[in-house]
Structure formats: C-alpha cells, structure tokens
Nucleic acid binder design. Sequence first.
DNA 1: AGATTACATTTTGAATTCATAATTAAGTCA
DNA 2: TGACTTAATTATGAATTCAAAATGTAATCT
Lengths: 238, 238
Amino acid sequence: MDAMTDTNAIERRSLHLELVERIRPLIVESQLNPGDKVPEKVLCERFGVSRTPMREALKVLAAEGLVRLEPNRGAWVTLVTVEEVEEVFPVLGALEALSGELACTNIADAEISHIRRLHDQMMDSYRDRNLVDYFKTNQEIHRAILLAAKNQSLTNTCQALSARMQRARYAANLSEERWADAVAEHEQIIRSLEARNGRELGQILRQHMKNKQESVLKWLRKTNTDQESECAGPGQQC
Amino acid sequence: MDAMTDTNAIERRSLHLELVERIRPLIVESQLNPGDKVPEKVLCERFGVSRTPMREALKVLAAEGLVRLEPNRGAWVTLVTVEEVEEVFPVLGALEALSGELACTNIADAEISHIRRLHDQMMDSYRDRNLVDYFKTNQEIHRAILLAAKNQSLTNTCQALSARMQRARYAANLSEERWADAVAEHEQIIRSLEARNGRELGQILRQHMKNKQESVLKWLRKTNTDQESECAGPGQQC
DNA sequence: AGATTACATTTTGAATTCATAATTAAGTCA
DNA sequence: TGACTTAATTATGAATTCAAAATGTAATCT
C-alpha cells in the first residue's frame, strides 16, 4: 500500500516563503554583502512581486538573524562580527558534537560509504590544493553527518546558525598549516564514523569547530583591519 | 565618559514585533491551544491593528515553529508531538550542557549566590509540595544559568526551542518519584556550579534534560490517549 | 566656505482594497 | 434520509493606496 502511505500532497507555497528561500542564498553567498542596505524596491522588481510579500520575507530573514530591520529606515544585511563568531561557534560546536553522536547511532551503512567517498574525494582536492572543490566537499560531508543524525530540529537549528557564519569567503584565509590540521581532523572524523564511535566523533567535531572558529576569527580580524577606513559611515554596525 | 558610552538610543519598535512578543506568550502559556486555529481577525481587533502587521507577526512565529501556516487556509498553533519532543529535547540537552560549561567560566560570584537563593527557595517549595512555585523557581534557575553563560546566541536558540516545548502544563504530570529525582539532580547542579566544575555541570544538566524528556513524553502519551477521540478533524496534525 | 533652514523627493509602515481560494449553506435528486 | 451540486459567504494572499518619517537638495545666512 505504498500509494497510500506516500505523501502525494501537492506542494503549495506562499510567495513570502519563496522569497525567503531565494534571498537567503543571496545573503549567504554574498551577492548581498554584509553591511549593505537591502534594496527592497529593487528586489521587488527583480522577483516581480509587490512590497507586501517582500516585507514579510524580510521579517522572517530578520528573525533568522540574516538581516537587521531598523524602524522607518529599512533592512540591512547583518555584519559578521567578532563577538558574534565567538558566540555562535561554540553553539555550533555543541550541536555538531550532538550530530556526530546521533549519526553513529542512526546512520545506515550506505550513508557511511557515501561519506567515505566524499572524504576520499576531498582528499584528492587537498592533494591538488584545489580550495574551491575542497570547501564544497567539506561542506557536503558535514551536512551528510548532520542529516545522518536524523533529527530535523537539529538540522534546522544548525543550518540557521551556519548560514549566519557562512556568508563570506573564509576559504581565502585557510593557511597551509591550518589546512593540514583540518585534513588530519577529517581523517579522525571518518575513522570514528566508520567505527560508529559516537562519543569520539562528537569530541572531534567539537574540536574541529573550535579550530574553524580561530581560522574564521583570523580572517575576520584581517578583513576588518583592511577595511578599517572604509566603513566609517553612521548607522553602520562597525 | 559614561554618558557617551551608554546606549541612549530611543527604543523604536515596529508593530509586527510588538505583536510577536504579545502573541508568543499567548501560545506558550496555552491561551491559544495547540491545534487551534489562530483567529487572525479576532487578534487584529483585540490589538487594534490591521491585518498587514498581524500577518507579518504570524510569519515570524511560523519561522519560530510556534504556528504552522497552511497556504490559503490560515495559521494553526502547532501541536507538541512525540516526534518533536524526541527531537528537540536532545538538542536542548546539548545546549544546556554548553550553558553549564560556559556559566562556570563566566559567572560572577554574586550570580552564584543568587542562584543558590533560588535553589533554597525551590527546596522550600518542594518540602511544601507546592508544584506551581516549584516550577516557577525551577525555570528561573535554568534561565539564570543560561544567562550566566553570557552567550546571546545560545540564549536565543535555547529559548526558541524551549518555547516550543513549554506550551502546556507538564507540571501536572510530575510523579512523586520523578519529582524526588529531579530535586536530587538540582542538588548536584548547585553543587557543581558552586564548585565551578563546568564539565560536571554540563553532564548533569544534559542528564536532567533527558529525564525531563521522559517525563514530558509520559504526560504527552497520556494526554494523547485521553483525547484520542476528540481531535479527529481533517487538516489537524493528529 | 561652511553651517542652517526650508522645501521637494523618496522610502517606509501600515491600512485598505480586490481577486481568488476555501468554507459554509442551500438546494437538488436518488 | 443522505449524497452530490451549486450558490452565497467568508477568509486569505497579495497589490495598491496613503500618511508619516527619513533623506536629499536648494536656498539662505553668517
């Protein structure tokens, strides 16, 4: 009776949700830069919608922490601040640790082999010093572990926080030394996962996140210093 | 130069945020019951606003998981399901553990004495078997530890998830046995906190949350069985 | 020139309006 | 009576409108 148990419900979507899901990547992938004003009118024209659903979408994105609403002045893409990084990464660390623990309990063998393939692929990218591919596969691995935990609330919470941290090209910062360390950590990750040692995987993932935090902070401090003179305008979050 | 460094900015609020913060407690404190339709028109009249800011508020509450929007059919207060409890509590456990660890590092002595007073007060309520006061003080203690962690992102994330779990009177379910166990756990909590043993406090808080999950699940299963015949309407999340 | 005011323009917040979808009520027929 | 249509009512989604606030520009004065 698969035909009955399958979800056949016709997917009906509201305009504002559609907008949220289209604008979010614009922010995460830095089409809209941190600190920029969100051009409400321009986006309305671009997506061919009126201001009502657009403003609803901006309110949701504000709740997610991706934009900041100033009453009577509009919406701005939030900046990634040092303080925010120092707050969010420990939370992400605790959540990734949990995802590792849960994954080891709930993951299927096929999923493990899939992650193993991603891991090997990432190692190829490392050998070629192909930073773009490395980062892409890296993200896929972490996401696969998260999904293997089979906990929707965990997935949602992690993704919301990750989105706030991810908007920027941290890749540019990865030093040769940090890169080598990260690779070593990933060797441990795949080993623990294949051994289904949840406790261990959790601890490694948390340490991995701590190291990433340092890497991001280094990049952030450098970027801020570089642009010190630029963003002196009033009303900005400098 | 305190006058300059202080934040004197006049707090300006938007209507939709005001509504979010007024409707949220209606849901968390079960003025609006899980499964109920959110009466958009009634709420608009009650708060004296038009539908636009009300609908913006509902979209934010939907993003928080407190209401569910069905396209063309309106908003419904989300139900607390067994599946959701089994997902959210482990996440809350990991986050409370983190809050314990961070609190032990960042808490001021004055805050510890404050929590000690709350703890003693809660023990009085326990001796009197005053469940209402016990629960109130209990929540204050957990909140105080969370705030002592001095991590806004952690606070926000925890509160959002707690809100989803808290809407209902779980208190009614607390068995004499579980109550005694919970009290014993709280003795450990205050002891670890005063010793500033973060690792230990984290572990206890996580176990405490695991036990609370079981308690809530017991209540939930009982409630669901009791009301089995009632909520058979279509479109409900039964 | 540089600061200050007055005015025009633009942007924003929120109410209103309008088309469409969903629900309810009434009517029809087996 | 009870299932099925069809029409009336209501609720919803989104565009439009309008007042208020913010911003930009020109004129004025020291």
